[in-house]
Design a protein around this nucleic acid. Structure first.
Length: 850
RNA sequence: GCGAGCGUGGCGGAACUGGCAGACGCGCUAGAUUUAGGUUCUAGUACCCUUAGUGGUGUGGAGGUUCGACUCCUCUCGCUCGCACCA
């Protein structure tokens, strides 16, 4: 084998073409082109020390096939890649070894870039970006400052400069400043965070598992800390509406829809017996007001202190202390029984003047609605459970439609939360649920007791992290507490060098270890301190797709003419794990930039595809501990990048999870090898003698055209596995032929090229073509050849196949019927009976009913 | 608990809009080439039965609609993934 000159030497071929593409900048996207544009984007990777795993190339291969296909279809294609390079692992490594995260990151990027290049993806490498590059994060900081300097105009439903905010009259200077700060889209707030005393740091929700830290299993508690927040909730409605405009799967849309969690209902004020204050509640079931038998406030509710009776003070205090120590996870653990304590205070039900007790319980969340509820135990499962536990009154006010439920609910044995007919509700009796809601809302409004209201589950975005390896906030704090943002010419604000990457024990972030950087003298001689928090990893990925459009612009994050040409992203491929957060955050930033006219489209990503997970050979998720991780470098070394790409696509549908199988790689490798041998003489490396300039026979021509159609259609629909299967069928046909028509092979090479570009380029060259095939037009097909000349007609009697007859494709229904009925086998099978009904499906089958 | 998705040979998977289930690949069996293994090539391969047929059964299970169901409807079982007290 080794002495033959012309064997399929994939290592050599792949290196040769990767070098060629790089030297010739084959895939450089042109900003100034008459061609229609196509922007195909991959979710950029975090450059980890582990390097690439086989999951990465799945999405990247799919997008690369589309990119290459679209180029051949005459599109000007933008297909970029970069690095989402801020993040915790490099920082942890720095804590352990003292290596600067920038160095670790650079090494990891160099390694992964090499790996990615070895797969032959058609990226425009001149547009490579890196979120940790100061030239990049300058603009992340710049966008943050825009948020800081903006407010949300409710009337226009859009962001506007903070200077244009109308400030209420009669405020003191301090009051004005506070009013402004309260309206900024980036604001500071004291919020409860996951604090891990053992690690001395704050953790993200995802890093807390069952109340313990993911790393090291240390206890995590809730602790209020000053944090930066982004007011994403102002965009709830627009983020919801925008989902109608994009071409995403229903399941992803639903995920985002539910995450935003819009619910419409009413706010109702309950007077407090003996106090001037009122308790305001939010409810979606104002029609059950007559059944409200008690109230519950969140333990953190500001009224609790005021209204608690002296006799309950101690118990209430203790309950609040316990609740505050619980993590969110503990609090939401359904397995736990409901807890709570009465405050000793009473509220008055506005519809009937009934005095009802006020309790506190941690099943009511301070962060949703008004932080207090009216409890209707007969018609709310949670209230039902609570009332039963503490012996509170249950009054039925809705009659269920089903007789069975009716009795159980009446006896107080069952809670019914569906719609029904109103009872025990005074003048509202007999109303249906929907109608009741309307009527009671108007009644509340007329009597100044409440109004219609909308609530969202979506919370403002906690945007600061107590970490080193992130974008510094471009802000300074003065002694008097006021905040001075940096000006645009002061950006980027780079990270300082520190000796110690650990957070200070007090919870001060690692940046406090760089006093020279932290302490600033302002032009007027006064002192200020820089913000010590950094931004979360999501920040850089919120807008990276815009930077690819204009990666080196020093004046603006993206030139608006170029933005208008390239946006929006036509196809976005990435993992489903980002279905909510990344995609929601970047849509939010995009809409914000849209408000200022920096981007021209309301949504960034038109079409979204989530590739499925690649599992280990054992069908389990790949992990180091299971020892089932497949190394892509090894696969490429053994079988080549083309085989790797082909196998990743051949495994199954792109969006499905599927297990890896090394024999499968061998299978597609054999396919490439077989094709190679069809065309190339293995002894000499020249074109095989059997490839000749002859006309293709009818069968070959039909198969070729059918294959061209099938592969093109499948690429358009992301059915890469079936496209490959069609190409295998074609090659199997070629193998059988003594003389192979060169013209057919030329066309076939072109459709293979997006999938296995190296071998295709090489064969293209051996066929005598001088230059790269990357911009050769995608071959067309002739519809007349796609149809078969004849087909095999299946003849069924009562749905069972009795005969198969070859029939001309242009036979009429009558002719087909006749042919079928005159078949000997059919006549025999009918046994002399007369056909009752004959169903003819053209070009498929005939079904005879007797 | 709620929501979404999925169940097809030994395995990964195909099957257009209700029209021949199992394309393509893996694996396996037999044969050819080879000193042998591997490679390559040829033939076969859903299951069951028998005298190998013009046979029976088959798309998680049970019903239904239809001339005809992997496909549509109802119920049910199993798996996977989200969400998880949002009033």
């Amino acid at each position: 084998m080794c002495d033959k000159k012309g064997v399929y030497n994939f290592n050599e071929i792949e290196k040769k073409w990767q070098d060629f593409w790089q030297e010739n900048k084959t895939f450089k996207a042109n900003d100034d082109s008459d061609k229609p544009k196509y922007y195909v984007l991959d979710m950029f990777p975090y450059p980890s020390g582990q390097g690439l795993h086989v999951g990465h190339p799945e999405g990247y291969t799919a997008s690369d096939i589309v990119a290459r296909y679209k180029r051949m279809k005459g599109f000007n294609v933008l297909h970029p890649i970069g690095w989402d390079a801020f993040g915790l692992p490099a920082e942890q490594y720095a804590i352990q070894t003292g290596t600067h995260p920038a160095e670790t990151t650079k090494n990891n990027i160099d390694n992964m870039r090499k790996q990615i290049k070895s797969l032959g993806f058609s990226y425009d490498w001149d547009r490579e970006i890196n979120t940790t590059d100061p030239k990049y994060f300058k603009w992340t900081q710049w966008i943050f400052l825009k948020f800081f300097n903006s407010y949300f105009d409710e009337e226009q439903q859009k962001a506007r400069p903070i200077d244009e905010l109308v400030i209420p009259k009669g405020l003191s200077d301090q009051g004005k400043a506070e009013y402004i700060d309260d309206n900024r889209l980036a604001y500071e707030a004291e919020v409860a965070v996951n604090w891990c005393p053992e690690l001395g740091t704050v953790l993200a929700n995802e890093e807390v598992i069952n109340g313990l830290s993911e790393r090291g299993d240390h206890p995590v508690i809730r602790k209020p800390m000053r944090q930066w927040m982004l007011r994403i909730t102002k965009y709830s409605e627009r983020l919801l509406d925008g989902l109608d405009e994009v071409d995403w799967t229903d399941s992803i849309k639903k995920l985002q829809h539910d995450w935003i969690g819009k619910s419409t209902g009413a706010e109702v004020d309950f007077a407090l017996d003996g106090f001037d204050e009122k308790i305001r509640v939010f409810t979606t079931r104002a029609d059950t007001l007559f059944g409200a038998t008690y109230m519950v406030m969140a333990p953190e509710h500001p009224l609790v202190d005021k209204i608690t009776a002296d006799s309950q003070k101690q118990a209430v205090e203790e309950y609040r202390r316990t609740a505050s120590r619980k993590s969110d996870l503990d609090r939401t653990d359904l397995a736990k029984e409901k807890t709570g304590i009465a405050t000793g205070a009473y509220a008055v039900n506005p519809v009937n003047g009934q005095k009802i007790p006020v309790w506190i319980s941690d099943y009511v969340l301070i962060s949703y609605g008004t932080g207090a509820i009216m409890a209707v135990p007969a018609h709310d499962d949670r209230d039902f459970e609570f009332a039963n536990k503490f012996g509170l009154e249950i009054i039925q006010v809705v009659e269920p439609p089903s007789q069975q439920d009716k009795d159980a609910v009446a006896k107080g044995q069952l809670c019914f939360s569906g719609n029904g007919r109103a009872i025990n509700s005074g003048k509202f009796n007999d109303l249906g649920t929907a109608e009741f809601k309307e009527k009671i809302a108007s009644w509340l409004e007329e009597n100044d007791l409440g109004k219609k209201a909308v609530n969202y589950k979506l919370r403002d975005w906690l945007f600061s992290r107590q970490r080193y390896w992130g974008e510094p906030f471009p802000l300074m704090h003065q002694k008097n507490g006021s905040i001075i943002p940096l000006t645009e010419d002061q950006l980027p604000l780079a990270l300082p060098l520190v000796k110690d990457y650990k957070p200070a024990g007090s919870g001060e972030p690692p940046l406090s270890n760089a006093p020279d950087w932290v302490n600033v003298t302002l032009p007027d001689g006064s002192k200020a301190k820089r913000e010590l928090n950094t931004m979360p990893q999501w920040a850089g990925s919120c807008w990276y797709y815009l930077r690819y459009i204009d990666p080196n612009n020093a004046e603006i994050f993206c030139d608006s003419e170029k933005e208008k040409y390239w946006m929006n992203v036509d196809l976005y491929i990435g993992g489903a794990e980002h279905a909510v957060l990344h995609l929601l955050y970047s849509r939010f930033w995009h809409k914000f930039l849209y408000d200022y006219g920096y981007v021209s489209t309301p949504e960034p990503f038109q079409k979204l595809i989530n590739q499925g997970m690649i599992l280990g050979t054992d069908g389990q998720k790949m992990s180091k501990s299971r020892g089932n991780v497949v190394n892509p470098d090894k696969v490429i070394a053994d079988y080549g990048a083309d085989s790797m790409r082909l196998y990743e696509m051949f495994m199954g549908p792109l969006e499905a999870s599927k297990p890896w199988n090394m024999h499968g790689v061998e299978g597609v490798h054999r396919f490439l090898q077989r094709f190679w041998r069809v065309v190339i003489d293995e002894e000499t490396g020249a074109l095989s003698q059997s490839v000749q300039d002859v006309d293709a026979d009818d069968e070959t021509l039909r198969l070729l055209h059918k294959t061209i159609k099938k592969v093109g259609d499948d690429v358009e629909n992301f059915g890469f596995n079936t496209a490959i299967s069609a190409m295998m069928i074609f090659v199997n046909h070629l193998v059988k032929m003594q003389v192979k028509p060169k013209s057919a092979i030329e066309k076939f090479v072109l459709i293979l090229a997006p999938f296995a570009p190296h071998i295709a380029e090489d064969i293209w060259q051996k066929l005598g073509c001088q230059t790269t095939l990357a911009y050769e037009p995608w071959p067309g097909y002739d519809p007349q050849f796609v149809k078969e000349a004849q087909f095999e007609l299946a003849v069924q009697i009562k749905g069972k196949i009795k005969d198969k007859i070859v029939v001309d494709a242009d036979a009429t229904e009558e002719q087909i019927k006749e042919i079928a009925l005159s078949s000997e086998k059919v006549i025999a099978a009918m046994g002399g009976k007369e056909p009752k009904k004959v169903i003819v499906i053209k070009s498929r089958l005939v079904n005879i009913v007797v």
